[in-house]
């Protein structure tokens, strides 16, 4: 088992024990919420896991890297950026997907663009954002987020 897994689980267990000492009822309630959100995310987790299996099992790395690899250039990066902005999956699940793309021949730039637009921009939640914050602010935030996501991606591709 690797270090990350141990550290994350240790933090969770210690935090829970502290919570238990502070307030038993609240700790129980938070465990209930944890269980509920875990069940809620499970179907999507299996979907992502199967898609990753199919992706790496069927699509040859040359194909992946042709579209979003090092030689694909800015068009490939913009493409995954747009896909990330539109896709509506929990951010937690975007990381295994990104790792599989990287494994399958995608460039660091493309993967960084994908994660960054996926987490920062929500095309699906945009109507709600406009309702709460107004058209100007919501559009500015999503639009400029896309631009900085692409800039971040290219810097990552250059230094990593």
């Amino acid at each position: 088992m690797d270090v990350t897994v141990i550290v994350i689980n240790a933090i969770a267990i210690i935090s829970f024990l502290i919570a238990l000492l502070k307030d038993k009822e609240k700790a129980k309630k938070s465990l209930l919420i944890a269980g509920k959100s875990f069940i809620r995310i499970l179907p999507m987790m299996f979907i992502i896991i199967i898609v990753i299996g199919l992706l790496l099992g069927f699509v040859p790395p040359e194909e992946i890297s042709k579209f979003i690899g090092n030689q694909s250039g800015i068009v490939g990066v913009l493409l995954v950026g747009v896909v990330g902005a539109i896709m509506h999956i929990p951010a937690l699940l975007s990381f295994p997907l990104a790792a599989s793309l990287l494994e399958g021949g995608a460039s660091v730039t493309a993967v960084a663009a994908f994660i960054t637009t996926l987490t920062m921009i929500g095309v699906v939640t945009l109507p709600l954002e406009i309702k709460e914050l107004g058209k100007k602010m919501a559009l500015l935030r999503n639009g400029i987020s896309f631009v900085i996501a692409i800039i971040i991606a290219f810097i990552m591709g250059t230094i990593l």
Partner: peptide, 28 residues
């Protein structure tokens, strides 16, 4: 396909419950 999916399943299932517990604690 099965080997890849299984690998990713293991990696997820080892950390997701812990992450969920943290989310739950903060929510409350």
């Amino acid at each position: 396909v099965i080997a890849t999916s299984w690998d990713f399943f293991l990696e997820m299932i080892l950390i997701l419950p812990a992450v969920m517990v943290l989310l739950g604690l903060f929510a409350v």
